[in-house]
Design a protein around this nucleic acid. Sequence first.
DNA 1: CCACGGATTGGCT
DNA 2: GCCAATCCGTGGA
Length: 201
Amino acid sequence: MHNSSILNRNYYFGDVHKVAESLLGKIFVRKLKGNILSGKIVEVEAYDGLIDEASHAFNGKTKRNEVMFKQGGLLYVYFTYGMHYCANVVTGNIDDPKAVLLRGIEPLEGIEQMSLNRFGIKSFTQKEFINLTNGPAKLCKALGIQRSENGTDLTGEEIFILDSPNLNKSEIIITTRIGVNKSISLPWRYYIKNNRFVSKK
DNA sequence: CCACGGATTGGCT
DNA sequence: GCCAATCCGTGGA
């Protein structure tokens, strides 16, 4: 199915901004009920722990954000707006709570299952195809990621990320984050230029 | 294409 | 009690 290797623990101990940028183009894989669901990561945001007012970890550890305070390479899933889940990749050391929010992926494998998860039906229009995974809560729905996936080890078998060469600088747009009220001018959002599954240009 | 508001629940003050 | 790292449908330009 794939030849590339799974990103190892060491990868997730890098600088959160470097990890965020380098995750673009890599393949996020979710095994769900024997199906493989996968997609290319096309949009992310970095949340820089204790110095970042917009980070969930800014005010210290709570039951909700405790996974951010664990070692890099875990999945931090949070619930928001009363109905949505969003997924982050935790980076760095214990008690150094940084994370990369996954905001958009381009579906590769298991597309019919993603449509079932999103819309309750296997078929979809061209417009619905884009709508499958072009947003942080949409991609969680499509991949079947919810509260029970919080804390999943990305070096395990269930959810992991496959390595691939880093993109050229010319293929990457760096800009401000979306949906935050604090630290709004920090350019900590990264996405692939001209990709249709980026949530907002 | 853009702006606006409703949905809905848990975390935190 | 307030409001969120969102999404979707609606209505107008």
